[in-house]
Design a protein around this nucleic acid. Structure first.
Length: 490
RNA sequence: CGGGGUGUAGCGCAGUUGGUUAGCGCGCCACGUUCGGGACGUGGAAGUCGGUGGUUCGAGUCCACUCACCCCGACCA
């Protein structure tokens, strides 16, 4: 008996916390609100990065890197942008320390005060648009399609591993376009990329929509979002793409000469996903035994565990297993053979279940004799024997099947916890149990605030209009085509 | 930033009205028996009791201050 998780049913957030720590994904650091991402957790992030990076490049984007620090004056150039971020900025005021007079340490040297304070980027629109000003003169310089992989800092009051940390890793795309239509198309294209990635790679079903004015990104004219439902019925905003209009171009005076020789302001988008996605993966698929990882981002897809008694058996099992190891590697499968003699098989079974390895292959003397192996799949915990001859093919298709299965499971869960409502009372009486509530909405900003105060829920997104059918807004009673998802959110 | 709570070995905790050498479980190390679902035995290492100051013959224990972390709210990806 070693690592026991708090059961989900008992305390969901405790379960989440236990899991992150015990699966060795991350831990709290001695810096308030900042986490240490441990090798296993970082390996998942690397998988996420690799896939997304490829998708960004396939859609014509390139990577670059901009400074961590932003002069304070830059941030205030776009009024609503600074308003949104001002309350959570880390500020650098000095550039030097000196020995304290009591000799016990160092103090900030008051002589070394910066002329202008620097802000640790909470997001990079301002520093990037200040740079784009120098890069863009003519329509021939457009579009500019740039992404950066970086860390950002937002001084959050309350933090939770992966879901909300003061420093987090993300990617932020910042694009510049000659026309409104092209920028809008880009913003929509990227939210599509995120949706595809979430569903195909992370196996997380998401609802795509746009944010209400209240929930929009600071400085955006339109924010598109993908919203996922966690196992406790709460929503997690998993990626956003913003149509920024000409706000930043105007704030930073970025103009280009069009083919007719006229000066115009540039149109912009920005879009990002963060290490929060790891939290989304955990809270979508995992169970009381530990992590359940989608094969596509599992750092380890297959674990091989030997079972033996005597030294001769050990040699035989090792030979048999090494063979399988090399063959799987040859087929591009990420696999490890845990031949450590310091832990017993049962211990290893539990350990790799905790870590969410999709497929476990166990081999003992019995299996060598029968030319087979025992396979256990992490998603269903089913165990069965597979002939050695067809093993490789079966593992390949099983990885695929697991990927599909956990997606379907998550989709069913979401469908079963999504409710169409026609009156706000239905929301009030059911919101405590979580879930997505679909309602017609034609309310004002104030109505939205009222909704939040009364139910603790928020409008997660406005759904795309699929048909021309209409209904009555649950607050104002106005007839409308607009439908929204309401839910409690992380 | 308001309300509540906790700081004792790597982790989880116990420690009586102040009284010698501060314990327990897990983990760790060594050896042996084990090995198809988190093994067992024997021995061992590991602690400035969050910090500072005070009361006292004597403080993990009492007092003051302070720091850190956790939970609940307001804020947020």
């Amino acid at each position: 008996m070693a690592k026991v998780l708090t059961p989900k049913e008992e305390d969901y957030s405790q379960w989440y916390n236990d899991l992150v720590l015990k699966a060795d994904l991350a831990e709290n650091s001695s810096v308030r609100g900042c986490m240490v991402i441990k090798p296993y957790g970082y390996a998942i992030w690397e998988k996420i990065q690799q896939t997304l990076d490829r998708m960004f490049k396939e859609t014509g984007h390139v990577n670059a890197y901009f400074p961590l620090f932003i002069p304070k004056s830059f941030l205030s150039k776009e009024a609503s942008h600074v308003e949104g971020f001002a309350k959570e900025c880390a500020v650098i005021t000095h550039y030097r320390l000196k020995n304290s007079s009591d000799g016990k340490g160092v103090i900030v040297d008051p002589e070394a005060k910066l002329e202008e304070e620097l802000i640790v980027r909470p997001t990079s629109e301002t520093i990037i648009w200040n740079t784009y000003k120098n890069w863009i003169q003519s329509y021939r310089d457009l579009p500019l399609l740039i992404n950066q992989w970086a860390n950002v800092v937002r001084w959050e009051m309350r933090t939770r591993l992966f879901l909300r940390t003061a420093e987090f890793l993300w990617q932020e795309g910042h694009t510049a376009h000659a026309t409104k239509e092209e920028a809008m198309e880009e913003a929509l294209k990227m939210i599509d990329v995120y949706k595809t990635f979430a569903e195909n790679t992370l196996a997380i079903p998401v609802i795509q929509g746009r944010k209400t004015e209240n929930e929009r990104f600071a400085g955006a004219l339109e924010t598109y979002t993908i919203e996922a439902m966690m196992q406790d019925g709460k929503a997690l905003q998993s990626g956003t793409s913003h149509f920024l209009g000409q706000n930043f171009a105007k704030a930073f005076d970025v103009k280009f000469l069009n083919s007719k020789g006229e000066l115009e302001y540039v149109w912009a988008t920005s879009w990002g996903v963060s290490t929060r996605l790891i939290g989304a993966v955990i809270m979508t698929h995992s169970d009381n035994h530990g992590l359940v990882l989608p094969p596509q981002i599992a750092p380890l897809q297959v674990i091989i565990i030997p079972i033996y008694k005597s030294e001769t058996e050990r040699q035989q099992v090792l030979d048999y297993g090494k063979d399988i190891l090399h063959e799987l590697k040859h087929h591009g499968i990420s696999v490890k053979f845990d031949d450590r003699d310091t832990h017993k098989p049962g211990w290893k079974f539990a350990e790799y279940e905790l870590k969410g390895v999709p497929i476990r292959v166990a081999i003992g003397p019995k299996d060598i004799e029968n030319k087979q192996v025992e396979i256990a799949r992490r998603d269903t915990l089913d165990k069965f024997y597979v002939s050695r001859d067809t093993l490789i093919e079966q593992i390949k298709s099983l990885l695929n099947e697991i990927q599909q299965n956990i997606f379907k499971k998550a989709l069913n869960f979401r469908n079963n916890n999504t409710y169409e409502i026609t009156h706000i009372d239905e929301l009030k009486s059911n919101i405590e149990n979580g879930g997505f509530f679909v309602a017609y909405w034609e309310g004002t900003k104030e109505d939205e605030k009222l909704l939040n105060e009364q139910t603790k829920a928020t409008i997660r997104c406005i759904l795309p209009e699929e048909s021309s059918s209409t209904g009555k807004c649950i607050i104002s009673g106005k007839e409308t085509k607009k439908r929204v998802i309401i839910a409690k959110a992380y």
